[in-house]
Nucleic acid binder design. Structure first.
Lengths: 216, 216
DNA sequence: ACCATAACCGCACTCAATGCAGATTTGCAA
DNA sequence: TTGCAAATCTGCATTGAGTGCGGTTATGGT
C-alpha cells in the first residue's frame, strides 16, 4: 500500500503546512531573527519541542519542497532526444527548473528571496541545498551519457551551468526595485539564464531562436 | 603611520594565531562538534567572552585569511597582458588561487578540507565565503574590460568557472583514495574544467592546447 | 605622569537544539 | 468493540552559541 495516506499522514501534512504558513506570516510581520521557534510553534498550536520533529531547524522552514526542482531536472534528463548532447540536456533541464519558479507568485518564494539576501544563515542553507541538487543532477547526467561523460566532468559541467546562472542572478537581484515584483524577478531569471548559457548554446547545435522565450 | 605595528597590534595578532593553533589542535584531537568555544578560549588562555572579539563564530576559525585568495585573483586580473580576454584572465587567476592551495601542506588546510566535507555548518560558511569572493572577482573583472563585459556577464562567467571547479572538486574529494594525492586531484580538476568550460574558452581566442596542462 | 581609548573579562541572559520519559493518539488485527 | 504496538506529542532539563552591559586593566600619545 504505497499510495495509502492514513489519517496520521494527513494530519501530519496539515500541521506541517500550518507551520510553514505561520512562520511565513511571522517572518513577514516581525522579521526572521526576531521570530523565535517558540513563537512559530505557539502560532501553529503545537509544543515547542514538537517543532523539531517537523523541521530540523528554523531555516528548513523556508525550503519545504526542496526535492521538487531536482525531480524536474532529472525528468528533463530522462526525456532527452537521441541527438541531444550533455549541454543541450542540461540546458533544457535548467530552463525547466527556471520556469518551475512560477511559484514566485507565492508569498513564501518572495519571502525566501528576501531572506536569502539578508540573513546569512538562510543563504548558507540555500547554497548547501543547491550544491546537493547539483551533485544529484550531475550523477544522473553522467548516467545518461555513459562513456561520453565521466562523473567528474559531469559534475564540472553541471557546476558551471548552475554557477553561471547563480552568479548572474546574484547581480540582477540586488536591484532593490525588482524585489516585490514577481514579473521583474522572473524576467531577471530568464535573462540570467540566457546570458549565462549563451556560450554553451553557441557551442552546441542550438541557436538562440530556439529558446522558448524572447529575451525580455 | 600606516605601517606602524604597535605592541597592542603584535599582541593581538599573536593571540589570534594562538587561538587558531589551539583550535586546530583540539579539533583534530576531539572533533569539531565536541570542542566548545570555552575549551578553545581556555587553551589559548583568554576568557570565553573575549573569544568573540577575535572571531565572530566557531567556523571563522577555519578561515583566518579568507581575503588572501581574493587578493591574489584581483592581482592576477590587474596584471593581465594586452591580448588577454576575460576568460584567459579568469583562468590564470583561478590557477593562481589553485596554486595558492599548495599551502595544503599546512595542518589547518588539511583539517579544513576534512571538516568542510563532514560538518554542515563549516561547509555552509565556506560556500558563503566563496560566493562573496566570486562577486568581488566579477566586479574587478568587469572593471578590467569596460564595454566588452557588463556586470551580469562578468558574474555569469566567474560563476561558471568557480562552479565548474567546485563541482569537480566535490566529486573528486569524496573519493577516499585521491585525498592524499594533491597532484592527481589537481590534474583531474583541470581536465574536468576544460570539458565544462570549452565553450567559454573557444568564445575567446584560446585553444585548449595553450592551457598549461603538462604539469602534474 | 596623565588621560583617553582599546582590550579584557565576568555575569546574566536569550535562543537553538537535543535527550529523555511519560502521556496520548492512531493503525490494525483479533 | 477491544486491546496492543507503534508513532506522535509534550514538558522538563541540559548544553552550547552568541550578545549586552559594566567594571577593570593595559596601552599609546602627550
Amino acid at each position: 500500500m504505497l499510495g495509502h495516506v492514513s489519517l496520521r499522514d494527513r494530519k501530519r501534512a496539515r500541521t506541517r503546512q500550518t507551520l510553514v504558513d505561520a512562520a511565513t506570516e511571522l517572518f513577514e510581520r516581525n522579521g526572521y531573527d526576531e521570530t523565535t521557534i517558540a513563537d512559530i510553534a505557539a502560532a501553529a498550536d503545537i509544543g515547542t519541542r514538537t517543532f523539531f520533529s517537523y523541521f530540523a531547524s528554523k531555516e528548513e522552514l523556508l525550503f519545504p519542497e526542496s526535492d521538487a526542482r531536482v525531480q524536474a531536472a532529472i525528468e528533463a534528463i530522462g526525456s532527452r532526444g537521441p541527438d541531444d548532447g550533455p549541454a543541450e540536456v542540461l540546458l533544457r533541464a535548467l530552463h525547466e527548473v527556471g520556469d518551475d519558479n512560477d511559484d514566485m507568485a507565492s508569498r513564501l518564494a518572495a519571502l525566501r528571496l528576501r531572506l536569502v539576501r539578508t540573513v546569512p544563515a538562510v543563504r548558507g542553507r540555500m547554497l548547501q541545498i543547491q550544491l546537493d541538487a547539483q551533485r544529484e543532477i550531475a550523477r544522473h547526467l553522467a548516467a545518461a551519457f555513459p562513456g561520453r561523460l565521466d562523473e567528474v566532468s559531469a559534475a564540472a559541467l553541471t557546476g558551471a551551468f548552475v554557477g553561471a546562472v547563480t552568479g548572474a542572478l546574484q547581480v540582477l537581484l540586488d536591484d532593490p526595485d525588482k524585489l516585490g515584483d514577481p514579473a521583474a524577478v522572473q524576467a531577471a531569471v530568464r535573462r540570467a539564464t540566457d546570458v549565462a548559457l549563451t556560450p554553451w548554446l553557441r557551442a552546441s547545435a542550438w541557436t538562440v531562436d530556439r529558446l522558448p522565450h524572447g529575451t525580455a
